[in-house]
Design a protein around this nucleic acid. Structure first.
Length: 315
DNA sequence: GGCCAGGCGCGAC
DNA sequence: GTCGCGCATGGC
């Protein structure tokens, strides 16, 4: 059961691992007390540590299957962390907030999340604190995912669409997912039906767009933009959440519906609007919300498996 | 104990 | 197309 460790080094002149993995875009990464960032993505356990311009890695597999095909682990990590892509964001001279935010958060990159995991995660995140969302995602992984033991710690992969689609909304209700229950169940089933035989990036984009158009999926404008930005290479997307509403109003005098703020941001910043919005979002939250230090709790990979498995109904 | 969370969906206009 | 409101749950 214990897995071999594949190690190596990656060049990274522009990406900051802590800013990236601690930004809140991913739910299954954490920083351990030993200084390593630990997580599981695409079914592979990965440990990362930044050492200046280099990133040291340890991984549980040397091959990784993605929607872009199978990759060697170092190619995968360069792709996943988007190490070769850090666009130079041009800031209008008068936009002092964005300039400050960009200078402070230079190195925050968008990870290429697994689209299915990203969709389910953000459907679950609706009107819930990140800590609770993380718990729910972790619960799904422990009950339906595959067990991976790496370096003495237990991890669980995120379940596939076929596994998740076996659950009905009653299961989620019983496990106190609230009104997200019907939406997660419907969405998982929709995706399971749509990805038979695999899906590439274009297919995932169509699936996400369809879910957004489909009422009851739980994919509204905000969740759709998160999926776009964090897993579908649509780096122009501007997700509008409670923090974005605040900085839009207080710093730019923009008010109104989320859709209106979204259009404003995407029109204002153009091609790389996702970066601009994320810099401002993270900067504002750092000033007025929980800081990065507060949010990055010590890592706990080895949560006990749930005593109640989904198909062992205990009433 | 009240307020809020990386909002969505539905029914009125 | 846009606005207002109800919604389950748990953290703080």
């Amino acid at each position: 059961m214990a897995m071999h460790c594949f190690e190596g080094m990656l060049e990274s002149t522009s990406v900051d691992i802590g800013l990236t993995l601690g930004s809140g875009q991913v739910f299954r990464w954490g920083r351990d007390v030993d200084g390593w960032w630990k997580g599981i993505a695409y079914g592979v356990v990965v440990h990362l540590r930044q050492m200046g311009d280099q990133i040291q890695y340890r991984a549980s597999s040397e091959r990784v299957a993605t929607y872009c095909g199978e990759m060697a682990i170092d190619d995968f990590l360069r792709w996943y962390l988007r190490l070769d892509h850090m666009p130079r964001i041009r800031v209008p001279r008068e936009d002092t907030y964005l300039r400050r935010a960009r200078d402070l958060l230079k190195g925050l990159q968008f990870v290429r999340q697994d689209p299915f995991e990203c969709i389910i995660s953000y459907v679950l995140s609706v009107q819930a604190h990140m800590s609770l969302t993380k718990k729910r995602i972790g619960f799904l992984a422990r009950t339906l995912g595959e067990r991976r033991v790496f370096e003495g710690e237990t991890y669980w992969t995120f379940p596939g669409a076929d596994a998740l689609s076996e659950l009905d909304s009653g299961f989620y209700r019983r496990h106190r997912f609230g009104w997200r229950s019907e939406r997660v169940a419907e969405t998982a089933q929709f995706i399971a039906g749509a990805v038979r035989g695999g899906a590439d990036l274009d297919t995932w984009r169509c699936i996400s767009d369809d879910l957004h158009a489909l009422s009851g999926s739980g994919v509204g404008i905000k969740v759709a933009r998160c999926i776009d930005l964090f897993s579908l290479d649509r780096l122009y997307a501007v997700p509008v959440d409670t923090w974005v509403r605040k900085f839009a109003r207080e710093w730019y005098g923009v008010t109104g519906s989320d859709a209106k703020i979204c259009r404003w941001g995407e029109a204002r910043w153009g091609k790389w609007a996702g970066y601009c919005n994320e810099y401002l979002f993270a900067y504002y939250r750092e000033l007025y919300g929980p800081t990065l230090y507060d949010r990055v709790l010590s890592f706990n990979a080895s949560d006990e498996a749930s005593a109640v498995m989904p198909f062992e109904e205990q009433v």
